[in-house]
């Protein structure tokens, strides 16, 4: 893939590759080319008692180019290398530029010999909470998370609901006050507020 493409050009290039709307795509292959047999098993034995070396958790305390400097909640310092092949999630798939000082983070990748974590995926401010919905307003829901009040902001066009394991929908009107739910969302740092990505609930 041409490295000099801007994001929009890159999207056009990849769209053409998968939908085959152009014959000029070079190097694109289809179905089966990355079958399991072609890939080394990424599961190296990890001692469950020890911190996972290929994982990092903490808050961003510095950004040096594309290197994230992260202080773990246990005080351990991590250097996390982000590349154009690293997925970045912050409420939705986004770009590295959205990472800010103070963001909470989970990252998975490969720990290099110099201690840097070469990240495959970075999730910024992601939270997964079992809650009770205690009240609702026009663009938010009030949640009880183990006795702590959390404000869940509904983000138009992004927030989705999964009712009784059925496919996710944008319709939130089946949510009820008093019901329990699981919320995947993005924490707003140093507040008790989250932007809601997906809420899992029952529709009964």
């Amino acid at each position: 893939m041409p490295a000099e493409l801007d994001p929009l050009g890159r999207r056009r290039f990849l769209t053409a590759a998968v939908l085959g709307t152009t014959a000029t795509v070079a190097g694109a292959t289809v179905l089966g080319s990355i079958g399991p047999e072609a890939v080394a098993d990424p599961a190296t034995p990890i001692d469950p008692d020890a911190p996972d070396p290929n994982f990092a958790e903490g808050r961003i305390t510095g950004i040096d180019g594309t290197l994230l400097l992260v202080t773990g909640s246990d005080g351990v310092f991590h250097r996390i290398q982000v590349t154009n092949a690293t997925s970045v999630w912050k409420l939705r798939p986004t770009v590295f530029g959205d990472a800010k000082l103070g963001d909470g983070l989970y990252a998975r990748g490969v720990r290099l010999a110099d201690g840097v974590l070469a990240a495959d995926a970075v999730w910024l401010n992601i939270v997964n909470m079992t809650v009770h919905i205690t009240a609702m307003a026009r663009d938010r829901m009030y949640l009880d998370h183990h006795g702590h009040r959390v404000v869940g902001h509904v983000v138009s066009g992004t927030t989705a609901a999964v009712y009784n394991s059925t496919p996710a929908v944008a319709d939130l009107s089946l949510l009820r006050v008093g019901q329990h739910a699981r919320v995947i969302g993005a924490w707003r740092p140093d507040t008790n507020e989250v932007d809601v990505a997906t809420v899992y609930a029952s529709a009964a």
Binding site: P2, A17, V18, A28, V30, L31, I34
Partner: peptide, 8 residues
């Protein structure tokens, strides 16, 4: 559909 584009 799936396409695989080699690494840049």
């Amino acid at each position: 559909r799936l396409a695989v584009v080699p690494s840049e």
